[in-house]
């Protein structure tokens, strides 16, 4: 089973929420998970309704079975300074490099270095062990960059390894890449049943596969129930008007005769139903696209009031119910 879960998805699909729910779902029965953020947006803090996360692993939630979710917002600059300190005892030189703009260069401009630092930190957490030999974290969940950039983000170690042909960055990149391409890692894509997110998911899966990165599952987020199927909407629109008017009237919504209050409701209600039917038909087509990928698929319902903490636990339960992810 995978221990590093990389969660990506098109912007607006709720990947941070899904990553958080997954971290909670995996923290069953005394297990400990780490949820990491790499884009400096403090999205995790918002989802868990806590203050901004520092560059430090801290417990942010407990799961019903006694598991724990820890969180970490990885900051590339701090990660680089740590790294320099750890391997080169470069305290002073690190500061000098920073003053010179080298750290800024390294973490924002230098090809891929930023990404090596971010993925490297996550991989380090995956492999970290206690003195007893037990892993510190049973699973690490990463709220990763969006689908359009995920392959480059993860594969960047390959790129850096090719660019820096020797030296510690090269070695570090190689080590990270070994973890990312192993079965220990699973890259999950979050999507909605809409055209663009599904298109990006299909493209993203192809890119990940081409790069030899392990694709996990597809999480369909914000699934809405089908209240009326398209054929029922047709039925309602054609020939059932009088009956529906009578039913509305019977339910206390006014007169059913032509021009009566209930009768006047029918056109706008049918219009909404037609929009619903059109959406349902589109969603079915998109669903077929996803099924065609041949990947494990998970579904999370739309929480119409937005995702608060209670909603997050509910999504985690749903994920857990749908089997091992």
């Amino acid at each position: 089973m995978s221990r590093l879960h990389v969660v990506s998805g098109k912007g607006g699909t709720g990947k941070t929420t899904v990553a958080a729910a997954l971290a909670l779902a995996l923290a069953t029965e005394g297990r400990r998970t780490l949820l990491v953020e790499v884009e400096g947006r403090q999205g995790i803090a918002q989802v868990f309704e806590t203050e901004a996360l520092p560059y430090e692993e801290r417990k942010i939630a407990v799961s019903p079975g006694g598991g724990e979710v820890h969180a970490l917002a990885i900051d590339a600059e701090r990660a680089l300074l740590d790294y320099l300190q750890m391997f080169y005892k470069l305290g002073g030189a690190g500061r000098a490099l920073k003053k010179l703009g080298a750290i800024d260069f390294a973490t924002t401009i230098a090809p891929g270095l930023r990404d090596v630092l971010l993925t490297g930190k996550a991989c380090e957490a995956v492999r970290r062990k206690e003195k007893s030999g037990r892993f510190v974290y049973d699973a690490v969940v990463m709220d990763a960059p969006p689908t359009g950039r995920i392959t480059r983000f993860l594969n960047v170690n390959d790129e850096v390894a090719g660019l820096a042909k020797i030296g510690p960055i090269h070695n570090q990149a190689q080590a990270v890449m070994r973890v990312l391409k192993s079965p220990e890692t699973a890259v999950h894509l979050v999507t909605l049943l809409e055209e663009m997110p599904v298109q990006e998911t299909v493209d993203g899966v192809a890119e990940l596969r081409a790069a030899g990165l392990p694709v996990g599952g597809v999480v369909i987020n914000m699934v809405r129930p089908t209240v009326l199927a398209p054929d029922e909407v047709d039925l309602a629109a054609n020939g059932a008007r009088a009956g529906i008017a009578a039913a509305l009237s019977g339910a206390g919504l006014g007169g059913a005769r032509r021009g009566g209050r209930a009768e006047r409701l029918i056109d706008p209600l049918l219009e909404q139903a037609r929009e619903h039917a059109e959406r349902v038909a589109l969603e079915r087509a998109e669903h077929t696209e996803i099924t065609g990928l041949g990947l494990p698929t998970y579904e999370l319902e739309l929480l119409s009031e937005g995702v608060d903490l209670a909603g997050l636990y509910r999504l985690a339960r749903e994920l857990r119910k749908q089997g091992p992810i």
Partner: peptide, 15 residues
């Protein structure tokens, strides 16, 4: 009647 009531309920739920 039951069918109409069902459809009406669906329309109202959507609304």
């Amino acid at each position: 009647e039951a069918r109409s009531a069902r459809l009406a309920a669906g329309l109202l739920t959507l609304h």
